[in-house]
């Protein structure tokens, strides 16, 4: 039971970190990339450390892993925010969406976007 839960958490975490990496490659500019890194990266490392905690047991790992967890969860969004702040301050080139969305897309999905 514990093993299953731990395996599930580790896999979820690893796949969300991978998701952040895919977002880092696929999204068009710095600010959009920082979205992916902030959200998916935080959830990924949170799940991995939680899985480690479940696997090791509360007694062995105890508070140190909570410290690592809290540190990671606070610093990843902060780092992404710092990068976004710098991109905003230095007015780096931003990706702009093409003006008119292709009409066939919106007609097919039936929604405005």
């Amino acid at each position: 039971m514990t093993e299953l839960l731990s395996a599930l958490l580790l896999l979820t975490g690893a796949s969300f970190v991978l998701l952040a990496a895919i977002g880092l490659v696929r999204l068009p500019d710095v600010l959009c990339r920082s979205h992916a890194v902030a959200k998916a990266g935080t959830l990924g490392i949170f799940a991995i450390l939680l899985g480690l905690w479940v696997e090791l047991g509360v007694a062995a790992a105890g508070l140190k892993i909570l410290l690592a967890l809290a540190f990671q969860v606070t610093t990843i969004p902060a780092a992404a925010h710092l990068v976004g702040l710098l991109a905003w301050q230095k007015n780096l080139p931003r990706w702009r969406a093409p003006q008119a969305p292709p009409p066939d897309r919106s007609a097919r999905t039936g929604r405005p976007h």
């Binding site: 977002g23 999204l27 979205h35 998916a40």
Partner: peptide, 25 residues
């Protein structure tokens, strides 16, 4: 909200192209 955000990011990253984005401040 946090879980929802991650699912949104996953959907955007995996299935939608960048043309669906309208990023702005």
């Amino acid at each position: 909200e946090f879980l929802h955000a991650n699912l949104t990011v996953a959907a955007q990253v995996l299935f939608r192209s960048a043309r669906a984005l309208r990023p702005d401040f």
